[in-house]
Design a binder for these strands. Structure first.
Lengths: 133, 133
DNA sequence: GTATATTTGTACGTATGTATA
DNA sequence: TTATACATACGTACAAATATA
C-alpha cells in the first residue's frame, strides 16, 4: 500500500500518525485557535488515506478537546475558553469525570470536555476553574 | 430494515439507542462493575446490528468512562476506583482536561478519564480526588 | 514451545441521512 | 433548490494481542 505522507509500515496506526501530525500543527500554531480545517474528504486526500482513517484521526483530536466538529460544518480548532472562577468552600472534595449524554446536551458541553465535580455541583471544565481560598 | 431491539425509525441513531440501553444496564446493576461484556460480534448479533454500530456504541460508553476495552480482551464494566486524597494548597487553581496521548501511556490512563490540573501538577481523575482544607 | 481460536484494532469501500450554507 | 459537509450504517479483509489446546 503506497501513501504520500504517512505509512502503516512503522507499526503505528495511520490514523494515529495523522492525529500526531495535526496535533503538532495545532501546538505549533500552524492551525491556530478558531482555524477551520479542510473538509474530511480533502484532508483524507491530502494525507492519502481513506475516509475511515481520517475520521478516526479527527475523532482522536476531538476526544482530546483540541478540535470541535458540528454536522454540516467543517472542524474547527478549539479556542482557549474564558473561565469563570468558582470559589471552593473549605472541606469540600473535588473530582472530575466525563459528562453524561444528558449533561452534554443540557449544558452544551463539547466532546473532549470533562466535568469538574464539587460536592453535588458540576461545572464544564472548559468554562470554569476552581479557586482554593 | 428490520431489527429486533433497536430501530432507526425513531430519529435516534441506532448506536446511540444501544449505548443508552447498555448505559441503563450498567446503572441498574445488570452489568455490575467488573462484568465482562459479550464479544462485540455477539452483542452486534443480539442487537441485530452491524459491527460498526456496535463498535460506535461501545466507543461512546468508553468515552464516558463506563467501560474499558483492551485488544484481545472483551470489554469490561469499569470498577469504582479507590481515590487517593490530595490536599489543596491555598491560592491554587484547579481545572480539568483530557490527557495527552503521552500522558495516557505514561500514566496508564484509560479512555474516558480526565486529568485534574492543580497548578503544574496533573492527576488522573479516577485515582485521585482533591480536598479543600 | 507451537499452533489455533478468539477478540479487538485498523483500513478500505459503498450508500444514505441530516444539517448547514 | 442545490451544493457541501459531517453522521450513520452496512459490508469486507487483514493485523495484532490474548488465551487456549
Amino acid at each position: 500500500m503506497v501513501r504520500d505522507v504517512v505509512s502503516s509500515q512503522g507499526g503505528v496506526a495511520v490514523y494515529r500518525q495523522i492525529a500526531a501530525i495535526m496535533r503538532s500543527r495545532i501546538a505549533q500554531g500552524e492551525y491556530p485557535p478558531g482555524y477551520v480545517l479542510p473538509a474530511e474528504q480533502d484532508l483524507a486526500r491530502q494525507f492519502g488515506v481513506g475516509r475511515d482513517s481520517m475520521r478516526d484521526a479527527l475523532a482522536a483530536l476531538r476526544g482530546e478537546g483540541l478540535i470541535e466538529t458540528r454536522r454540516g460544518f467543517r472542524s474547527k480548532v478549539r479556542e482557549a475558553p474564558v473561565r469563570t472562577q468558582v470559589e471552593l468552600a473549605p472541606g469540600t472534595t473535588v473530582t472530575a469525570r466525563m459528562p453524561t449524554p444528558e449533561e452534554r446536551v443540557e449544558q452544551d458541553v463539547f466532546e473532549g470536555v470533562p466535568m469538574l465535580v464539587v460536592g453535588d455541583r458540576t461545572y464544564p471544565a472548559d468554562r470554569f476553574e476552581l479557586h482554593v481560598p
